[in-house]
Write a protein that binds this DNA or RNA. Structure first.
Length: 485
RNA sequence: GGCUCCGUAGUCAAGCGGUUAAGACAUCGCUCUUUCACGGCGAUGACACGGGUUCAAUUCCCGUCGGAGUCACCA
């Protein structure tokens, strides 16, 4: 059997949204699972939509996620160049287009934009154009004359008007389409660049791609590509069309939904491994009951036959959960390093940031949540005294005031501000004064944090902020309560 | 609108003629705990509908409905 070769062929037109990323991932996994090779090709035939920096995003994303390609623009594998504009520059596509003209499968079309526009109809707000083969019957002389005049032209494929075309897709099975549905697609545009439709077929063949992996938005145009393969007498590749990834509204993700781009997710504090893992599970599932996989584990277990047919909704909640799983599993040192910038954003005081990082580790799902969770270490923001009330603990504003007043002098005089030291005295003191530990710690926490929920116990907070700050905050809390009584 | 594809809980998703219809996220309880979170235990919740085929349909076929994709000198 032929060695599997897949490719990822993005166009550098903006951000890498997760649908794109998943296509790259599946193409990678399919190749690697079979011990095959994975190639990167840049499909930049749309010169108008090119966006500066988009190329960098592609390279960076593949590098960061570990989707290393065996061949690509910067890694020659003998079938280059790997950038379509470069391939076009050497006349590659035009040569094949002319071959089709010679064979009678394609023809020059000189119709201008106005005429084409007149062919368009609008249905449900969508523009639909069906070309009427107007230029198909131009005589040789007319064509020569137009060419000689330098009239702008495109080259179109002459699609049959009757019969059916069917093909096989590994995921969707056999699909048959009436040939009348097939428009005379443009092969070469008037700027002499090929269309995706054409360039892809040429390149996939020339570059030895065995499995074409792409989103199912290409499903309905695949019959057109097969006409091309047939016209050239080339072997049709194995098609693997993946289901789409939808947004909450059930529509496919596109570059316009920027918040679903890989880089934005990273910016929001998601881990690359988690993103990859999550995206792998949108549209595919392993045969075992397991959800956490590293990339290399995915390579082991990935069977493309288990790819789904129906599209999936991108669920941020589950991504968060998965991200938190990765965070919890991360070793403390690595977590500390990654969390540090987020911690430093809100904390300028000289605290033990390592301990703060450790506190936060099991409580966040995304790095960006750190800030609001630990901001109180830096400064207690204004809060409602009702926070001292806790029904279950039988804590009221009065009991809280009592506890805080009692504990103030104790904490002023106390030396050992370690967590154990503090817990020992405070819990002992609580017992002697008829309070449970819970009741006693509650107002202390609120007083020094201004919050009911903190990423650590009361004594842990005290040990972080130290005696001076503790005393100050408790004094302020007492004053605050007195103000409201 | 034509064509194509899809349709199991709010979401992801197992299932491939006979199951108490897995599992995960979310939600809600209980538990653990110096609060919260984590962890542990549990609960709620689904085969879009209607016809067939069959001893038996979530599973196969047809139709209906619903959703999506596509119909570009975009990929």
């Amino acid at each position: 059997m032929k060695k599997v070769k897949t490719r990822f062929a993005p166009s550098p037109t903006g951000k890498m949204h997760v649908g794109n990323l998943r296509t790259a991932l599946y193409a990678y996994l399919i190749a690697k699972h079979e011990g095959g090779s994975f190639m990167l090709r840049i499909d930049d035939t749309d010169q108008e939509r090119l966006i500066n920096g988009a190329l960098d995003i592609i390279y960076r994303t593949l590098k960061e996620t570990g989707l290393v390609y065996d061949e690509g623009p910067d890694k020659d594998g003998g079938v280059g160049p790997y950038v379509q504009s470069e391939r076009n520059a050497i006349g590659l596509y035009l040569k094949y287009a002319k071959q089709l003209i010679d064979q009678g499968d394609a023809y020059y079309c000189f119709c201008d934009k106005e005429r084409l526009a007149s062919l368009k109809t609008t249905v449900n707000g969508k523009k639909i154009a069906i070309y009427d083969k107007h230029c198909l019957h131009l005589s040789k002389e007319e064509i020569e004359a137009n060419l000689a005049k330098g009239k702008s032209y495109v080259i179109r494929m002459n699609m049959p008007m009757e019969g059916k075309t069917s093909f096989h897709d590994e995921i969707y099975g056999h699909i048959t389409v009436e040939n009348t549905e097939l428009n005379d697609m443009i092969l070469i545009k008037s700027d002499e660049y090929p269309t995706y439709n054409f360039a892809n077929v040429i390149d996939d063949h020339l570059m030895g791609i065995t499995h074409v992996v792409r989103g199912n938005e290409y499903l309905s145009s695949t019959p057109k590509y097969n006409r091309l393969y047939e016209a050239f007498g080339w072997e049709i590749p194995i098609y693997i069309h993946c289901p789409l990834i939808n947004n909450q509204n059930g529509q496919k993700l596109s570059k316009r939904f920027a918040n679903f781009s890989y880089e934005d997710l990273v910016k929001q504090g998601f881990l690359r491994e988690a993103i990859i893992n999550f995206v792998a599970l949108l549209g595919w599932s392993p045969s075992e009951k397991r959800e956490i996989y590293t990339l290399s584990e995915l390579v082991q277990v990935f069977d493309y036959r288990r790819i789904n047919k129906s599209s999936a909704v991108f669920d941020m909640m589950k991504l968060k959960w998965m991200n938190s799983e990765y965070m919890k599993a991360m070793d403390d040192e690595k977590f500390y390093k990654m969390a540090l910038p987020y911690i430093k954003k809100v904390i300028t005081k000289d605290y033990d940031l390592r301990r703060i990082a450790a506190m936060v580790k099991t409580r966040i799902s995304v790095f960006s949540e750190i800030g609001k969770m630990i901001g109180f270490f830096e400064e207690v923001s204004d809060y409602d005294v009702q926070m001292y009330v806790h029904k279950k603990l039988k804590s009221t504003i009065e009991t809280s005031l009592d506890i805080l007043q009692k504990v103030l002098s104790l904490l002023e005089a106390f030396e050992d501000y370690s967590n154990v030291g503090l817990f020992q005295v405070l819990s002992g003191y609580a017992g002697r004064n008829g309070y449970t530990i819970n009741q006693f710690m509650w107002p202390i926490r609120v007083a020094v944090s201004g919050k009911q929920a903190t990423p650590a116990g009361a004594t842990e907070i005290l040990s972080i902020i130290g005696r001076e700050e503790t005393v100050k905050r408790i004094q302020e809390a007492i004053a605050k309560i007195n103000d409201t009584l």
